[in-house]
């Protein structure tokens, strides 16, 4: 061993994790780990006390994120993280509630909850690790699997149109919409920070390698190769048309567009809004209108 490599027992970020549970269950090269680290660092930098951050997940590989974070964390049922988290956010509005889950959990089994929470503009941050497949169960086709990609339940290639997640989130009412990857970690952390500072329903999509479930059957090779693909093909364009954000990994000429695409204001979900004095409500509406014009 090189004499200039120092051996450590603990990582400086360990207090943010349930370090007694590390190493985690994720495969070598899985993109969830870096994205979780960026989230943990954003929590610290958010200046919101850690005790006021809450993380909620559904089921799947990404569903395990809250279990590794040293915070109030809830690992719920498949697809139901958003309604569970919605209730926490409205019962205790002083909490900063983040749903951290995967593409299958949030957009297949949980798709209905996503669109309604976005429509209501619940004060929630939704972080979606999109690895284009169901990883935990062994690489099945999902709602974001690109056309043509192979999966254990799409052995001849996926013949379904996948979701364009930022487009979906924006259309259904999210006030902040971003897409980054598990390689673009500084930008990702900034997007998480923006989401935490913002009231209302925010959505950050994180493209992440799943070398075992998605990479291997799709000739991407190992995780390094997918990360390299991100480095070579990602372009940052915050003003890109939302309907142009489809991802097609097969088309080597086609860029993968990243950025913070949407940052608007809308009235935030408040079940007691109609019980408040009219002036208070109007101010709220005026604020929303002003920002939209600006």
């Amino acid at each position: 061993m090189s004499t200039s490599t120092f051996i450590a027992e603990r990582h400086p970020s360990d207090p943010l994790f349930r370090a007694d549970r590390l190493p985690h269950i994720w495969c070598p090269g899985c993109g969830i780990g870096p994205a979780m680290h960026a989230y943990a660092q954003a929590m610290v930098e958010s200046e919101i006390p850690l005790a006021r951050h809450v993380c909620v997940s559904g089921i799947g590989c990404t569903g395990r994120v809250p279990g590794y974070l040293n915070m109030d964390s809830y690992h719920t049922t498949h697809g139901r993280a958003i309604p569970f988290a919605t209730a926490i956010a409205i019962v205790k509005p002083e909490l900063e509630v983040t749903v951290y889950s995967g593409d299958g959990d949030l957009f297949a089994i949980g798709g209905n909850h996503f669109i309604h929470a976005a429509r209501r503009n619940v004060d929630l941050n939704v972080i979606c690790i999109n690895n284009f497949n169901y990883g935990m169960t062994g690489g099945q086709v999902g709602p974001t699997t690109p056309m043509g990609a192979r999966a254990t339940t799409a052995p001849f290639g996926n013949y379904e149109q996948p979701f364009n997640l930022p487009y979906l989130a924006a259309a259904t009412g999210a006030v902040f919409v971003a897409r980054w990857t598990s390689l673009h970690l500084r930008q990702l952390k900034q997007a998480f920070l923006r989401a935490m500072k913002k009231r209302g329903f925010t959505f950050v999509e994180v493209l992440a390698p799943c070398p075992v479930g998605f990479g291997r059957p799709n000739d991407i090779g190992d995780a390094m190769e997918e990360m390299t693909l991100y480095r070579e093909r990602c372009v940052v364009d915050a003003s890109a048309r939302l309907d142009s954000l489809d991802i097609d990994l097969r088309d080597k000429e086609r860029p993968i567009t990243l950025g913070n695409f949407v940052d608007i204001e809308r009235p935030v979900f408040d079940p007691l809004a109609m019980m408040r004095p009219a002036g208070e409500r109007e101010n709220h509406a005026a604020l929303a209108g002003k920002t939209q014009e600006g």
């Binding site: 719920t76 049922t77 309604p83 926490i88």
Partner: peptide, 17 residues
Amino acid sequence: MEDELASMAAIVGASVA
């Protein structure tokens, strides 16, 4: 809520809060 799946999840969430 949007359905009964969400309703039940929401009351569990409200209770943990």
